[in-house]
């Protein structure tokens, strides 16, 4: 997983997640506040530069991660390009340019802000942040177990796929659908056994629910938060001022 790799290996890994999440929130709000596509594009650029130059995420990786949402944006913009009525049929939408540039600007700015957060902060840090924000325990437990099992299951999927390919499991479309079905069914059974094992292991250690882990320590958390708050307010003020 590209994002996970970048999140652990960037320069801003040890900045408090509260600070990064707070600044991202300001960025998302600013994306909605931005009055013109130019301001939105500048926002997108700002967050992309923060991720690439500040946190040191490779630019190529940033682009590869952004490719999928950009595909969705392109496909959806296509539908705004045309207008359709029962009488006149298909024709170019009158204000398509303005609508699409507004939409694309806002989406790009918000996407860039999201990417800044996820590429600089590992998921367990964000789960820790949610715990401090009093998110319900039942949800947090789901997240903790799911994150830990993700990689186990991904390894199992890779091994099974390789074994199926070696036996011509993906030789035809029909065969590959069958292989996928077998893979998912087998995986589900592994899921069952893994879960039973985990439950027994937790029960043997007196586990009664509530999976807690030591969260990483952030030395300059207070300073980071103040800086992020200041930067976020400045950003919002600048965008609001420009848009009026």
């Amino acid at each position: 997983m590209l994002i996970d790799t970048a999140a652990y290996g960037n320069r801003w890994r040890w900045i408090a997640p509260e600070a990064k999440a707070g600044f991202t929130l300001a960025g998302l709000l600013a994306a909605f506040l931005a009055g013109s596509p130019v301001i939105a594009l500048m926002l997108a650029l700002l967050f992309a530069l923060l991720a690439v130059l500040g946190a040191g995420v490779p630019g190529r990786l940033w682009l590869r991660v952004a490719l999928l949402p950009l595909g969705f944006l392109a496909l959806s913009s296509l539908s705004l390009l045309f207008s359709v009525t029962p009488e006149a049929g298909w024709h170019w939408a009158p204000d398509a340019g303005a609508r699409i540039s507004e939409l694309a600007g806002r989406s790009l700015a918000a996407l860039s802000a999201l990417l800044f957060l996820v590429l600089s902060t590992p998921l367990p840090d964000l789960v820790g942040l949610l715990r401090r924000l009093r998110c319900p325990d039942a949800l947090l437990d789901l997240m903790v177990v799911a994150y830990r099992m993700l990689f186990v299951l991904t390894a199992a999927v890779r091994a099974t796929c390789k074994a199926q390919e070696a036996r011509l499991g993906h030789a035809s479309r029909r065969q590959s659908l069958k292989s996928l079905g077998l893979l998912a069914a087998n995986l589900l059974v592994q899921v069952w056994h893994q879960a039973l094992g985990l439950h027994l292991a937790a029960a043997a250690r007196n586990g009664e629910g509530g999976l807690r882990f030591l969260s990483a320590g952030f030395v300059h958390a207070r300073r980071d938060c103040w800086l992020a708050l200041l930067a976020g307010i400045c950003l919002l003020a600048a965008v609001a001022g420009e848009s009026v």
Binding site: D141, L142, M143, V144, V145, A146, Y147, R148, M149, L150, V152, L153, T154, V157, A184, L187, L188, V191, W192, Q194, A195, L196, L198, H199, A202, A203, E208, G209
Partner: peptide
Amino acid sequence: QPEQRMLLGVATAFAFVL
């Protein structure tokens, strides 16, 4: 059913991988 705690967590990971 406390044993479902782990099952649902692992099922979440399963849904993500799927």
